[in-house]
Write a protein that binds this DNA or RNA. Sequence first.
RNA 1: GUGGGUGUAGCUCAGUUGGUGGUAGCACCUGGUUGUGACCCAGGAGGUCGUGGGUUCAAGUCCCAUCACUCACCCCA
Length: 420
Amino acid sequence: MKIKALNGFKDIVPGEVELWQKVENTARDIFSRFNFSEIRMPILEKTDLFARSIGEATDIVEKEMYTFIDKQITMRPEATASLIRAYIQHGLHVQKPVQRLFTIGPMFRHERPQKGRLRQFHQMDAEVLGTATPRVDSEIMAMGAMLLQELGITVSLEMNSLGCPACRPGFREKLLHFIEERMDKLCDNCKRRSKTNPLRVLDCKNPRCREEVEEAPSILEHLCADCDEHFTQVQKGLQDLDVQYSLNKFMVRGLDYYTRTTFEFITEDLGSQAAVGAGGRYDGLVEKLGGPKVPGIGFALGMERLILLLQQQEDVETDSATVDIFVASLGDTASEFAFPLVHALRQKGLLTAMDHEGRSLKSQMKQANKASAKFVLILGENELEQGQAVLKNMATQEQQDIAILSDNNEMASSLLERCQ
RNA sequence: GUGGGUGUAGCUCAGUUGGUGGUAGCACCUGGUUGUGACCCAGGAGGUCGUGGGUUCAAGUCCCAUCACUCACCCCA
């Protein structure tokens, strides 16, 4: 019986990992341009942290978490809760009033795997804590858009406001009333959801439900004065930064902690996994987790989904490492001479390869070619006797004789010069 | 948790009305005269046909079960 990776868990092997590196490198570059600092948190946290932040009644907490029940600890299903826990624990709000943080890593949810959805998946997460200014809302969306654009991924940005504790309850009542009038026309799921989380009825995918809620009251028309002004300023900010967006009054969020601005980066090229990234404001969360009363906003990008989109494109460039110099040796004497020379070349900083299996020169040339080696140093019995080696430029096919030096360090320096 | 689809070489796949597993492609190894890559040619290696039952003289092929993968629902990044 072969041992295989668990269902929903994937290896990222050479050939694919280059794409991941490209995505990570691009993200680090963009985050850094926006003056974000990296933070890394542990994968295991107390179960209570997620229950309190994400919400007891959400699907994630109810049935999707990997929990060690006896120890009351859970593998994080998302990053925001852990990040805020760390923010509070280390008093980051004291060190700097506004913290701009990002993190990249694996998350775990026990869902049925499908395209763009794994049980161990990876997210890139950016959060700004300590400011409620609508400018940051615009800025963070602009950052996400810039990152996706840099990667060559085309998405649309949809945005909504969920209001705040001052205006949402009132809207909720109105919506509930609207739903109850049409209850018999809604699907079973919506009937259930109308009790647990009526806002979710708004984004049901069932066409009949969509038709029914088309005329539903919009939260945007029920925002309190502060939320309304905030939302207006966010939109102005996006226009100032020339970021394209559209309003979606049906967009709600699955996690309980969101307030005011929410947004999603949406693609049509991933089947049912339309959201490549999503986020929003969570002004009450830090305080709820026992921290200072500071507002926050953030978003997460699903890396598997980004990778799938990149793989769907033709000619995506990734820079995989190529061998600077391949040392081909013939016979035991030459091979023994080559072994420490290769080490010296590596100490000089060259990406160096050699064959330890005693294969033919032809085979070694093939290996060099396959590794896209720029140069091959050929060391044969004849060369050693004459104190000469052959350096071949693989692209131009030019060969030159070079003197073998007894000192590996000097020999390596000499080769380094010629291989530039 | 609920449906549908698919399981043959490392990967992508042929395999007829049931009749000996494919000179298939990619990748790999070795050769194609002394020691030189790409292209080409030849040869080689690589398999419990997902697993377990059943029908049959005979099963990769038909039937049942099971597992895995996958897509979708749900939910979400």
